[in-house]
Design a protein around this nucleic acid. Structure first.
Lengths: 340, 340
DNA sequence: GTGAAAGCGCTAACAT
DNA sequence: ATGTTAGCGCTTTCAC
């Protein structure tokens, strides 16, 4: 490995100039800059991130703490963040907390404190005050995606609004007996999304004078399998079968489509189904849904951090809670109820 | 942030002893060790990874280069590697190459060279000789998962054997007209798995005197959607419909199940279907499959690297190509053909 | 077993 | 715009 000194010698300048030319900080004449770049390329020189970090206090590395890797939302956020970081020359260090609680505490008590990251992105994680404090004390910016973290800038869709939109779509088609498959309590612990989506659903119903029927609510775990079982219960009842199901995620909605098929029901003739996400398979199943854009959320989280780490001239302050885009996508799983 | 000096002062020893006590390298009396640990805990001291890396040349960080994040196999490998690393106090820096080719070259020409990682795990990536050479020159150990990299220790299942086993299961049930959904050419570029699985399928057929029928092969892209379309072609033919399908992945097999249903065929009465992987939804769909264990592959990759980075007393050399476990799991998607 | 001190390879004052 | 130089916070000889 060539060092900065060799580059300096070859370029005929001092190490300071090499550092400045390569990092873009401080003024360097175009001539020396060109010479330095040529010398660096010739020698295959790459700054040692450790030496640079130690001297400058900046690591050009962002930590991402995330509870799952194998779920669409999470891997999409991660992908978006990774791509945005790579573009800016940043590394991404991953902390996946899918194991037990010990992992979580060791990450916060140990890993994040060893000065390896400049900032942290927490995905769908409700951090404790203590955890937030630790990072704050270190002066590490923190941004959340998908979960409200008190006192921290967080990116999240308007779950109430999204759910309301989905439900209103069904109502607009003429449905009134609309069931809801939401999250079970366990899921509500770490991010209140299930509760919020249920609230949006209920609000939309009340707006048209329908009192939400608690027997039309079924909890599940956000998977296809969970949605399948929940929908079987909802659709299997001999009387008063709902004419539509609003599932809080596309995976549960797809489970519902499969359950309907197994019960001999035709979607959307016998039952309309809508979800939230627009994930991989939604289009394949013709599922109507409200799309959200987790890749973009990951990218945006990076942009927010970059503004704080490397403030540009156009430093906009930014609210502490940003609303993200979502979009109704009507496909073939929703239609007017056939009784009408 | 407390520094090593403060810990030394509080413990009444020198910084050298603190370093030795905390890192476990070199001999320290139990007494001083205890004192150091107590002082460190009291001050909330955590070694600065940059200073430590710069001085020692070790980063305690592993780079993982991976082409996808949103697919079962890849996220599982990543999860396994992450967990194994966390346990050992290592960080994991992620390089996801899902974007275009520019990302790939910048990762290899830049990111991996800045001394941020001690070693690299390459998942399902066929590295060029040049890329391997770069890492080798830096003295960075490299291990592959899921793709054969010339000259590099690689973990991979015996794709030929797995495919043979799946096919033999169908043959054992009495099937002879067995179709195969494999990878298309594009997929074969980066890892020869599709070709190998096809070879295993053909070998199993020939063993019982059946010449593989090229019209019973359909290429797809390893997704549910792709498997669905491929299976429709295979099962839609009016004459000589295959009595069984062997898909090179569970996702394609599940697509086949859905296609069969849409054609009015009952699985396994009218057609048996088997896949490879045993992924998330396979059990839900009652899919017979040959399970592989990507989490374990990620963990094992870490173990191999650890042996090289921190050789223990029981340093086993290890072959340059390790065979991994796989296992037939018979569920309800395979049965004897009904003609018999 | 322990301490003193010389770096690890850069960056950022400060000086010019 | 560029050079000089003192650290960044730790690890590791080397000497005791």
């Amino acid at each position: 490995m060539a060092g900065i000194e060799e580059v300096a010698k070859l370029a005929g300048v001092s190490t300071a100039t090499v550092s400045r030319a390569l990092s873009g900080r401080g003024h360097v004449s175009p001539t020396s800059k060109a010479k330095v770049e040529e010398a660096a390329a010739l020698l295959g020189y790459v700054v040692s991130s450790n030496a640079s970090s130690l001297a400058s206090g900046r690591t050009r590395n962002i930590g991402v703490v995330i509870p799952f890797l194998n779920r669409w939302f999470f891997s999409s956020v991660l992908e978006g963040a990774q791509q945005a970081l790579l573009r800016r020359g940043y590394d991404l260090t991953l902390y996946n907390l899918s194991g037990d609680g010990r992992e979580r505490s060791s990450v916060f008590e140990h890993f994040l404190l060893r000065q390896r990251v400049d900032a942290v992105i927490a995905v769908s994680l409700e951090l404790t005050e203590h955890e937030v404090q630790r990072l704050h004390d270190l002066g590490k910016p923190l941004v959340g995606v998908g979960g409200p973290i008190p006192g921290v800038r967080t990116l999240t869709i308007d779950d109430v609004g999204v759910a309301r939109l989905a439900t209103e779509h069904l109502i607009g088609l003429g449905h009134r007996r609309i069931a809801h498959i939401g999250g079970d309590l366990e899921f509500d612990l770490d991010f209140h999304l299930p509760t919020n989506r249920r609230l949006g659903y209920e609000a939309a119903l009340r707006e048209v004078g329908v009192e939400p029927d608690p027997t039309l609510f079924a909890p599940a775990d956000f998977t296809i399998r969970g949605g399948y079982h929940a929908a079987k219960q909802l659709l299997g009842r001999p009387h008063d079968r709902p004419t539509a199901i609003f599932a809080a995620s596309d995976e549960m909605a797809i489970g519902s489509i499969l359950a309907a098929r197994d019960l001999g029901l035709v979607v959307p003739r016998d039952v309309s189904i809508i979800g939230i996400d627009d994930y991989d398979l939604s289009d394949f199943f013709g599922l109507s849904t409200v799309a959200q854009f987790p890749r973009g959320q990951g990218e945006q989280a990076v942009e927010i951090l970059m503004e704080q780490l490397e403030p540009g001239p156009d430093a906009a302050p930014g609210a502490s809670m940003t609303q993200l885009p979502f979009e109704l996508r009507v496909r073939s799983s929703t239609a007017t109820p056939s009784e009408l």
